[in-house]
Amino acid sequence: MKQASANNKLIIKLVVSVALMFGFGFALVPLYDVFCRITGINGKVDLTPATYAESSQSDRSLKIQFIAVNNESMPWQFKPNAYSMKVQLGKTYQTSYQASNMTSEYMVAQAVPSVSPSEAAQYLQKVDCFCFNRQPLKAGEVKEMGLAFNIDPQMPEYIKTITLSYTLFDITAEDSKPIASTNL
């Protein structure tokens, strides 16, 4: 009997750890997001506007490149209006991308930003960005999509060029669903 109750106690502990580890698997999703936001490990950029105001400006400047990518079967024309800019750290800049829906149907797109080198992501503050919202375009419509950003003067010295890319995904089908459902 003593054996049986000792077994039961141990089994309960083990089953609880299994359940916890199953939960931990899912907890890795937000943990990873938090971890990435802190370290910029994957070059993923915050999808929420920076509350950050213009900070102390610095004399340093660096080159920022803009890139547009269409994900598969995304037929829009999509390109940055400026391919690169020399920017001063701490100052807010405006630029824009142009998107045109060349199809004969109403479509909705979501732009997903990414920064390289990835550790630069956390220093790139977006004040306003078309990637914060999904972008609906009627058939044949052309739209200028604005972007305002500044770069934190804390940016490590060794980074001389950063690249900001936007990938345009077709989300017409999922338009009814909330975006960023895993971004807790």
Partner: peptide, 16 residues
């Protein structure tokens, strides 16, 4: 339309 714009949710790419 299919050749230029592809077909969403399938392997058919947009060849535009």
């Amino acid at each position: 339309d299919v050749v230029l714009n592809g077909k969403a949710g399938t392997a058919m790419q947009a060849f535009r």
